[in-house]
Each structure stands twice: as structure tokens, then as C-alpha cells.
């Protein structure tokens, strides 16, 4: 099936706090895996967000299967711990298991992963891109796609722009080579950076700023996922009247009486109370319309995901994944 992101192997998902970034990343992994594919979902901030959305015990630093996608397909998950990633890196590239342990004891690992932030990001993105590039014995890629639940919008460009970040620290040497390798993946057409937003002023503004920053750094912007979209139940004409304070309360009261919800005395009180809701809804709809217009400016494919009335549970994730697939996101 053709999607907007055929050929993309690394899906980076970012967004302002509170927009549902982890939920969207999880649903995207399910959507990408459906139909018999194998997808790795990665988290990097030590929050155990993946375990929470899939209702699992905390994930170790190990790739393990956590969900089966619709019509076959597997989602694996990995919670990257920068310290473990550093030890693994030392062992993998230098065969230095013992030295790694010595480094941990000396506090070097702690130092490198917490104090020198560029290094920390290189380790984490390094592990992620290694999973993207990894090939099996048959020479084929092990994962059809990797979805990265990345740091929030405010930090995303710095996080991905590793070469820039370590340039001041390491001009030559293995860290530099390693970061060049990472950069080769994240700046290629195999990567897409998706933004999660709500139809509210602050998240939309952050998205617009984030996309601009990303583009300025030469990193590939992907799609915009508008999360928690409420359907509008009232026709625009009625909403317009409500905003102008000219909603027909009398007509509503008649309807309430007719529905047997109130007698004549109570009907107008109930109608007044409901009108407050209508006015609030109308205002919110107007804001959403103008936020959609603002988002037009970033000129990226846009996907709208419904607000889940019962909150995010496993069934909700599958519902979001299905919605992504019908919209061509996966």
C-alpha cells in the first residue's frame, strides 16, 4: 500500500509536553507494523512512557516484542538508557568490556552521559540509528521501521543535530566519526521528523517554530499529527449565532420539553445552562479553525486523530493506528 512515507525507516516523533507524543508514537508503530512488518519503538528519556501506554511493567534496556499489529506484524520496544548505551558502544566498537566497567566505577560514564549533553544525545541517537541500519544474516534490514519517541519540540533540533552539538567538543576522533554516521542517517530521506500538536495556541506556535528550526538545520520534516480532535456536532451557522450571543434559547427549551427532559418551569433554566456549553464549544471551534489556518503555513502533510472519549488504553491505540492508516500516514 502506498503511504506518504514509503522509504522512510526512521520516524522521529516530537511534540510539546501534554500533546500526547508518546501515544502518537506508539500508535504510529502499530500502524507501520500492520500487515506483517516488524517495527521498533524507541524511547530515550527514561520516563517509561511506552510501558505506560501499553500497560506493561517497566521496559529494560533490551529489544522485546510488546504488541501484535492489526493483520499480523510485530512491535518491539526499547527504552534506551544512555549509560548502558555507552557501555554497549565501548564493547561493540572497541571490545572494551572491562574498561567500560572501570569507567563506570570512576564516574566517567556518569560524567559523559549527564554533563556532556552532546555525548548523551550521540549515544542515544547512535543506538537508534544502529537499529535502523542493522541487517540480518540474509542481508535484509532487521526492522522495517523504527519509531523514536523523541524529546519535546523545544529540544528536538539540538537533539538530532548531533554533529553540530559535538563539533565544539570533538573535532576528530571516534566520537566525531560516530556522530557523522548518525548524522548520515538522520539527515537522509530515510528519516522523517513528525510533530504532534493540539489545536491550541501554544502547541501550534511551538510546532511552527520547531519546523522552521528543523528546516534551518537541514533535517527532514515529516508530518503534523493533530491530536485529540473533537468532532463538531453543530452546524457552522448555529456556532456563529452562539458566539454572537444570539443562540435561540427558546427553541432549545421547546426541544427539551418535547424530549421529556424538563417541564415548562425547568426547561428554560436547563436550556440556559446548556447554552453556556454551546457558547464555549463555539468559541473553541473558532479557535481550532484559526489554529488549523496557522498550521497551513508549515506546509506538511497533516493527520487528524480523534479525542478518545475513554482516554488512551490499548483499544484506543489500535483506533488511532487505524485512523493513521486510513489517512495515509502509514
Amino acid at each position: 500500500m502506498d503511504t506518504h512515507w514509503d522509504g522512510v525507516r526512521l520516524h522521529v516523533v516530537t511534540g510539546k509536553g501534554g500533546t500526547g507524543k508518546t501515544t502518537v508514537a506508539a500508535a504510529l508503530a502499530l500502524a507501520l507494523a500492520s500487515g506483517g512488518r516488524k517495527v521498533l519503538l524507541v524511547e530515550v528519556e527514561g520516563r517509561q512512557g511506552i510501558a505506560q501506554v501499553f500497560d506493561l511493567p517497566p521496559l529494560p534496556y533490551e529489544e522485546r516484542r510488546i504488541a501484535v499489529a492489526p493483520s499480523g506484524g510485530d512491535v518491539y520496544a526499547l527504552a534506551i538508557d544512555p549509560e548502558d548505551a555507552m557501555l554497549e558502544y565501548l564493547e561493540m566498537f572497541y571490545g572494551m568490556r572491562r574498561a567500560g566497567r572501570a569507567l563506570t566505577k570512576m564516574g566517567v560514564v556518569d560524567f559523559a552521559t549527564t554533563v556532556a549533553p552532546g555525548f548523551r544525545d550521540v549515544l542515544v541517537t547512535g543506538k537508534t540509528t544502529e537499529a535502523v541500519r542493522r541487517r540480518g544474516k540474509d542481508g535484509r534490514r532487521v526492522y522495517d521501521a523504527v519509531v523514536l519517541d523523541a524529546p519535546p519540540t523545544g529540544r528536538i533540533t539540538r537533539f538530532l543535530n548531533v554533529t553540530q552539538e559535538v563539533a565544539g567538543l570533538a573535532k576528530v576522533g571516534p566520537i566525531k566519526n560516530h556522530s557523522d554516521l548518525v548524522s548520515g542517517v538522520v539527515k537522509s530521506p530515510e528519516t522523517a521528523v513528525h510533530f504532534v500538536t493540539l489545536l491550541e495556541e501554544m502547541p501550534v506556535q511551538e510546532t511552527i517554530d520547531g519546523v522552521a528550526e528543523l528546516r534551518a538545520a537541514g533535517l527532514p520534516a515529516g508530518g503534523v499529527f493533530v491530536n485529540m480532535v473533537r468532532e463538531s456536532l453543530l452546524p457552522p451557522r448555529v456556532l456563529d449565532m452562539a458566539v454572537k450571543g444570539r443562540f435561540d434559547v427558546g427553541e432549545l427549551a421547546l426541544g427539551l420539553k418535547s424530549a421529556g427532559l424538563a417541564d415548562s418551569a425547568d426547561a428554560s433554566t436547563l436550556a440556559e445552562a446548556l447554552v453556556d456549553e454551546v457558547v464555549e464549544h463555539a468559541r473553541r471551534t473558532a479557535i481550532e479553525r484559526s489554529e488549523r489556518e496557522s498550521l497551513d503555513a508549515v506546509d506538511l502533510p497533516r493527520y487528524e486523530l480523534p479525542l478518545l472519549a475513554d482516554g488512551v488504553d490499548l483499544a484506543g491505540l489500535y483506533e488511532l493506528a487505524e485512523s493513521m492508516r486510513t489517512q495515509g500516514a502509514a
Binding site: L90, Y94, M96, R98, A99, G100, A102, L103, M106, V108, L169, A170, K171, V172, G173, P174, I175, K176
Partner: peptide, 15 residues
């Protein structure tokens, strides 16, 4: 010394 070697390898001498 072992650690120093590892560090130099990992980070480069300038670092």
C-alpha cells in the same frame, strides 16, 4: 592507565 587509554580512544586527545 587502562581507563585513560579507553578514554583517549573514545574521546580523542584534544577532548
Amino acid at each position: 592507565g587502562l581507563m585513560a587509554g579507553a578514554l583517549t580512544k573514545l574521546l580523542g586527545a584534544q577532548v
